[in-house]
Amino acid sequence: MPNVIEIKNLTFKYKDKIALHNIDIAFPARQVTALIGPSGCGKSTLLRCLNRMNDLIEQTAISGEITYEGKDIYDRYYDVIELRTKIGMVFQKPNPFPMSIFDNVAYGPRCQGVKEKKKLQEIVKKALLDAALYEEVKDRLKESAMSLSGGQQQRLCIARAIAMNPQVILMDEPTSALDPIATAKIEELISDLKTSYTIIIVTHNMQQAARISDFTAFFLMGNLVEYGETDQIFSKPLQPKTEEYITGRFG
């Protein structure tokens, strides 16, 4: 399977602190890749490098190369807005905009210039269907997104990302604030979405990584310790550090 994103020799610093050391990794298309590791290991930093969210943080420095569809996304002429359209992101805490359900999903397309009402309705419906939320909200699209439950809000955020017709969806601990039922729905959704999208997910939940991902990368102190098929990582990791971490005997 082809790789959508390839990272070569990536080093990332916050001021003087090196957060990522010489990372080499590639993310295959239409697969779910889980990034795991203890807090501060660099996995979220890496995720944010992929759609240049770290550009917004001051005193950071990046070296090495990240290519998306063969193009260097840190090239000075690369269109960051276009990048974030193609590589969407869902965060730990659901963050719907304080507007209606419909307007939340239509926000991105409107920013891109889609004005025709019928077209917007089509986009919103498809995104909500893809995010497995449509049936629950179809009769109250004009209500505030804030009226939704936490799990529904998170699926709305996924719908909002999908509405931009991305190729990759980055998820930073998308279920850590949700109850088990809402978590199960998101996990099922991730499995459904991978037929159309490449998903890269940061998670602290080992069982979740084992359940939903095809590939797993284990990070420790800014280093990529091991990367491989999830079945292999969770049954027979090659590195002792990976074994210690996933079996809970770490430190």
Binding site: M206, Q207, A210, F234, S235, K236, T242, E243, I246, T247
Partner: peptide, 9 residues
């Protein structure tokens, strides 16, 4: 305990 890796083996 939901064992994995060597524990599961």
């Amino acid at each position: 305990e939901q064992p994995v890796a060597k524990d599961l083996r």
